[in-house]
Amino acid sequence: MRAVVVTEPGGPEVLQIADVEDPTAGPGELLIRTVAAGVNRADILQRQGHYPPPKGTTDTIGLEVSGHVEVVGDDVEGWSVGDPCVALLAGGGYAELVAVPAGQVIAPPEGVDLVTAAGLVEVAATVVSNMDHVGLRPGETFLVHGGAGGIGSFAIQYAKGQGCRVATTAGSAEKLEVCRRLGADIALDYHDDWVTQLKEATDGKGVDVILDIMGAKYLDPNVKSLARRGRMVVIGLQGGVKGELNLGLLLNKGATVTATSLRYRPVNEKAAIVARVAAEVWPLISSGEIKVAHETRFSIDEVQQAHEQLTGGNNVGKIVLTF
């Protein structure tokens, strides 16, 4: 099969198309013929050599795909060859075929084409599982950075649907307007003093929950922005891995800072998260209550351009690779 391989850690130029051995469906697994694969920030980190796959997982990049069932492994029920599907992966998505535990595979949302569906499952699973992790509640104020991106655009709508007041940051007037259209109550340019502006917008209280994609760069300003008993969950490291934490401020607020990685969770946990996405999120997408983010498509042969688009600073919404 054709797959994207990384010749060595580096920039987009290290991504090459090669013929590699086909994977096989083991017991409890499905083999999927890929229609499209979502492109995520984690893919950039893996390409650069900073985010290795879990032990025993293929080195091929890619955390989510859509496609059709090619082979049904032993001990798998409820699936037939040819069924359309989407899958949450630990790796392997940038390839024509991928083997995945059946519990991490679900049908696409009703009314959504397979290419678009490829960019939904990882975002939905990430946001829902982390909002459960920090116990987001109706009436709370929620902050997500990068509101015009894949995670941000979904998180804004999901939190609004949970009855929360939503704040976000973005880097241009155009992106801030996208955030407002998605439902953000507070939209702030991160080039400005967003910490002070957020404090003013919340009457000095701060925010109850932060979903953070930035990591070290925003650690101190995020803690300053938390309300008393606020909770922050770090899910991305775009701003680095080592920062300074003011423990005194955290103590005074009785606040919590935590971090999670969806990729390294056990299969049974991923299966439970994916099942919840199918049961609770897919109906919201099919009904239009959660709108699908703006989408940019590249063919698999344009994978280098796709990575350049994601890191270039002007991307809005989701990027998918088509096969």
Score class of each variant (00 low, 15 high):
2 R>H: 10
4 V>H: 03
8 E>F: 05
12 P>Q: 06
15 L>T: 15
19 D>H: 10
19 D>K: 15
24 T>H: 10
25 A>R: 06
35 V>P: 02
36 A>H: 11
39 V>I: 10
41 R>L: 00
51 Y>Q: 05
52 P>C: 09
63 L>R: 04
67 G>C: 07
69 V>I: 15
70 E>R: 15
73 G>H: 00
73 G>V: 03
79 W>M: 01
79 W>I: 05
79 W>P: 03
92 G>F: 00
97 L>K: 14
103 G>M: 09
104 Q>M: 15
106 I>Y: 03
115 V>Q: 10
125 A>G: 08
125 A>S: 14
129 S>Q: 13
133 H>D: 11
134 V>I: 13
135 G>E: 13
140 E>K: 01
141 T>I: 14
142 F>Q: 01
143 L>R: 08
150 G>P: 07
152 G>P: 06
166 V>G: 07
169 T>M: 01
169 T>R: 05
172 S>Y: 13
173 A>Y: 03
175 K>E: 13
176 L>V: 04
180 R>M: 02
181 R>D: 09
188 L>Q: 02
190 Y>I: 02
190 Y>M: 02
193 D>L: 13
201 A>M: 08
205 K>F: 04
213 I>E: 08
213 I>K: 01
217 K>V: 00
219 L>K: 09
219 L>R: 11
220 D>W: 04
222 N>I: 02
224 K>T: 07
226 L>W: 01
230 G>D: 10
230 G>N: 08
232 M>D: 01
233 V>R: 03
245 L>T: 11
246 N>V: 05
253 K>L: 15
258 T>R: 06
260 T>V: 07
265 R>L: 12
267 V>N: 07
268 N>T: 15
269 E>G: 04
271 A>I: 06
277 V>W: 01
282 W>N: 01
283 P>I: 15
285 I>G: 01
286 S>M: 12
286 S>Y: 09
289 E>G: 03
294 H>F: 03
297 R>D: 05
302 E>Y: 03
303 V>K: 09
309 Q>S: 06
312 G>M: 09
315 N>Q: 11
322 T>K: 00
